[in-house]
Nucleic acid binder design. Structure first.
Lengths: 138, 138
DNA sequence: AAGATTATGCACATAATCTGCATAACCCAA
DNA sequence: TTGGGTTATGCAGATTATGTGCATAATCTT
């Protein structure tokens, strides 16, 4: 099985290149010896929680200085998103998320450095991932 | 698949009966409509962590002083685990869990006596359940 | 609205898990 | 130590789950 390997490579690629479409990514992978087509890429990106921001795919995970407390966003199951923040910042970050009034968010709960965001399904999960990420990226 | 169902029944049975052997348990299960043999029972008991004490099978009681606050672990949906702790201990227990850096754990949130542990799917749920339990059992 | 991009139902391939059988390993009383 | 009762396990086949491409639907962008 080469799925895991392929997904690692995908992360590597989108972290070092500006990838604008799945077709592009597919070609790159093929040129590196992976036999794969667009459908699988689509599913891989879904699994990895990769989203397209400003026209390029990106992993919503960054040690961006400007990101104000938010460290990473990760999906869990199909109705949860888990956000990691700097210690003590969860509440503050959560307030910003709540203020955005993203309709797909069913509810949020903040701990010390973690926030759970509940959504209804996978599709909403992706939407929220993207929206939240947009709030904090600069 | 009837494995999960069968294992639940096994727990129920050994909690309400004195079961002295796997053969005995096998018969009881068959009489309740489960088609199973001793080999599988053996494997089930192993998985469930059931042990024979004073000649009867029993689920090990975790009220162990060494368990340091953790009272129970329970699954919810297929991407959540809910841990109950002694009142006021949730944060402390949660720190121990976090420190274990279990990769399958997406995030944790501690309240007063409850911890939510987010994982990605059922498989990871099982892994985490086991690992967390291992942290607190010795 | 049209073309580009991404998602998905379906069918099939592959991999993982489950299970019984047979039997080995273990336990313990005498 | 031995023998009967009990439990564990290697193996092979059955069953389930996962991964994949194809064709095409749904969605997005302009």
């Amino acid at each position: 099985m080469q799925k895991a390997e392929r997904q690692n490579k995908i992360l590597e690629i989108i972290n070092t290149n500006q990838i604008g479409s799945q077709g592009e990514l597919t070609e790159l992978l093929e040129s590196k010896g992976f036999s794969v087509n667009q459908s699988s890429i689509s599913r891989d990106l879904l699994e990895l929680g990769v989203v397209k921001v400003h026209g390029a795919y990106a992993v919503p995970q960054k040690n961006n200085y400007a990101s104000f407390g938010l460290i990473s966003l990760e999906i869990a199951g199909d109705n949860l998103i888990v956000a990691k923040t700097d210690t003590g910042f969860a509440a503050a970050v959560c307030v910003r998320i709540d203020n955005a009034k993203i309709p797909e968010i069913v509810g949020t709960i903040a701990g010390e450095d973690t926030i759970f965001i509940a959504v209804r399904n996978q599709k909403e999960q992706r939407v929220v991932l993207k929206r939240v990420w947009e709030i904090f990226e600069n």
